[in-house]
């Protein structure tokens, strides 16, 4: 009786392991065709599956990266992205449901960007928001960009927009980036920044006006 139970337990254990492996490989295969759902990935990441976390990283890193870039510039960008995903990995087991994941991810990005901004403000690192660095970044973009179709005019506009974002206060910039560039609804932006929707609307209004003025000074009118 006793040995039979132990056997059963081992069989069950092996079966569950095999099932988990099959699930992970199925998700790998599905992800190649873009079919793996966010819920499945997050569930397996919560169980500690690193390969699934790799897929999650691949799926979201570009969003996180561009948000951090638009908020903080290129200084320590790789480190910031890594920090965001470390925090995601650590916090994932505490996440209640997958439907909050995207908002939660942006919240972590926002927190990391805020910390970075504080560091910059303290003068620990040289701020990237000056003309020379922007020129360097523009050069880097030119060098690393593999799409030949992007013309010089667009690169110029990208540079102007980035300088325009730098021209805004950090709070206004965050609202504009999340709402206008990342196309998130105002409600979600409010959840990410932990402010009322009214504050988001007000900040968006001021941010747009301020940015429009800046762009007009640069010879771009609407």
């Amino acid at each position: 009786m006793f040995s039979l139970n132990i056997k059963n337990v081992y069989i069950l254990d092996n079966m569950s392991k095999m099932l988990a492996c099959e699930q992970a490989s199925a998700i790998d295969a599905e992800s190649e065709t873009g079919l793996a759902t966010e819920q499945e990935l997050i569930f397996l990441c919560q169980q500690g599956d690193r390969e699934c976390f790799r897929l999650l990283y691949q799926r979201y890193q570009q969003r996180v990266r561009s948000t951090l870039y638009q908020l903080c510039g290129s200084a320590s960008l790789d480190d910031l992205v890594q920090e965001v995903f470390f925090k995601v990995w650590k916090g994932l087991p505490k996440l209640k449901t997958a439907k909050y994941f995207s908002t939660w991810l942006y919240r972590i990005s926002w927190n990391v960007a805020t910390d970075q901004r504080r560091k910059l403000a303290k003068g620990q690192e040289k701020t990237s928001f000056n003309e020379k660095v922007w020129e360097k970044e523009l050069d880097n973009t030119k060098l690393t960009n593999t799409e030949p179709a992007i013309d010089l005019m667009q690169l110029h506009y990208q540079d102007v927009v980035q300088r325009g974002l730098d021209h805004l206060s950090f709070e206004h910039r965050a609202v504009l980036v999340l709402h206008d560039l990342k196309d998130l609804p105002q409600k979600q932006v409010a959840e990410i920044l932990n402010v009322p929707v009214g504050t988001v609307k007000s900040r968006l209004f001021h941010a747009r006006n301020s940015l429009k003025k800046f762009l007009e000074q640069q010879g771009i009118s609407f």
Partner: peptide, 27 residues
Amino acid sequence: FLRHNQPVPSNPRADLEQDLIDSLEPH
């Protein structure tokens, strides 16, 4: 205009992903 001309970050360094995965601590 902003969406069309939003600043694009440079590509991450090649080993960033593997570094990240390697340094994850088990839950």
